[in-house]
Simulated assay, not measured.
Amino acid sequence: MDLVRSLYGLTWLGLLLGIGVQLHYWPIRDLRLLPLYLAFALLFLLALRQGPKRAPRVLVHALGAYLLFEAWRSGEAYWGAGFWSPALYLLAAFAYPLPWALGAGAFWGGLLVLLPLLAGRDTGFPYGHYALSQPILLALTLLLARFRELYGQVRFWREQALTCPLTGLPNRRALEMALEREAARVERGERPFALVLLDLDDFKRVNDERGHQEGDRVLRRVAGYLKAHVRQGDLVGRWGGEEFAILLPATDPLGAERLAERLREGLAALGVTASFGVALYRGDLGELFLRADQALYRAKALGKNRVARASEPDTPPP
């Protein structure tokens, strides 16, 4: 967000500097034009007050009219306005959906191209370059905007496909992908990772006695707590229903068990109990899920609200 604010501020600074350069090379000699400059200043201030999201809709027309005015005032140097036309087309792309952006850009760009002809300016060099550059700049700008729009759609659907809409946590598919990546790291020689599965105790009774809205609230509360109390680099996701999973990179079984115990105590303090199953990756993800799940159900069988660890080859069952 800080970068966006910085770029937004830089855009306005560039606009002011551009106007200053224009006035330096073509100073105002006719004082009757001062009210027009005041009007443009008010339009730019109005756009500034709209904020980054709404400003382009005001600014695209204010800038279009200003460039047209400066092209007219500059006489035979009308082509100088063409240097700023890409900013105009980008504003149109940000302000409107693609068909309307094309219309707004073509309207102001067309006027910039037609002005020298209507005003009887010298249409030798550089008019040909000037006229040809405008539709090309408009087309490239809108093409870029279209790619940006498509990328945003792909990113949205990808995030939807990998995120639990209720809790905002990664869903089961996202967790499986993360586990596959972590397994690949282990195969390259990094330390093994641990998986923690946890299931809320007696959650069905919450839904039956207090309603599904209260059940959803509990799930969101648990998700927020888990996300806030794991270590940096750990990944919490919703495995399904009232079951959550935590991926602990480069963690031994004892460290994973201790973390699970801290989480269990923290949830209990919130009035929510859960059973935990802990397992260490040993080269097979399918076996990892099975062993963590078996440990979880052993915790349930032992009375719930506890942590159970899957037995390792050299470790007796806890």
Score class of each variant (00 low, 15 high):
residue 49 R to M: 12
residue 236 V to D: 02
residue 83 F to Q: 04
residue 20 G to I: 09
residue 116 P to N: 04
residue 255 G to E: 14
residue 125 F to A: 15
residue 78 Y to V: 14
residue 73 R to C: 10
residue 7 L to M: 12
residue 194 A to S: 15
residue 248 L to M: 13
residue 211 G to P: 05
residue 272 V to P: 04
residue 222 V to H: 03
residue 227 K to F: 02
residue 163 T to H: 09
residue 155 R to L: 14
residue 43 L to V: 04
residue 77 A to P: 01
residue 246 I to G: 10
residue 231 R to G: 14
residue 220 R to T: 05
residue 96 Y to E: 08
residue 207 N to H: 00
residue 184 A to W: 02
residue 286 G to R: 15
residue 210 R to H: 11
residue 22 Q to T: 08
residue 285 L to M: 04
residue 259 L to G: 03
residue 190 E to S: 14
residue 52 P to E: 05
residue 185 R to E: 11
residue 25 Y to E: 12
residue 161 A to W: 10
residue 159 E to K: 14
residue 277 G to S: 12
residue 237 G to T: 03
residue 306 R to Q: 11
residue 237 G to L: 03
residue 281 Y to F: 14
residue 162 L to W: 03
residue 155 R to K: 13
residue 113 V to Y: 03
residue 65 A to N: 02
residue 54 R to N: 09
residue 42 L to E: 00
residue 141 T to K: 12
residue 222 V to F: 01
residue 6 S to Q: 15
residue 32 R to G: 09
residue 310 A to L: 04
residue 283 G to L: 02
residue 123 T to Q: 09
residue 314 D to P: 02
residue 157 W to E: 09
residue 47 A to Q: 10
residue 193 F to T: 07
residue 55 A to P: 01
residue 241 G to P: 05
residue 205 R to C: 00
residue 187 E to W: 05
residue 181 R to N: 10
residue 128 G to C: 05
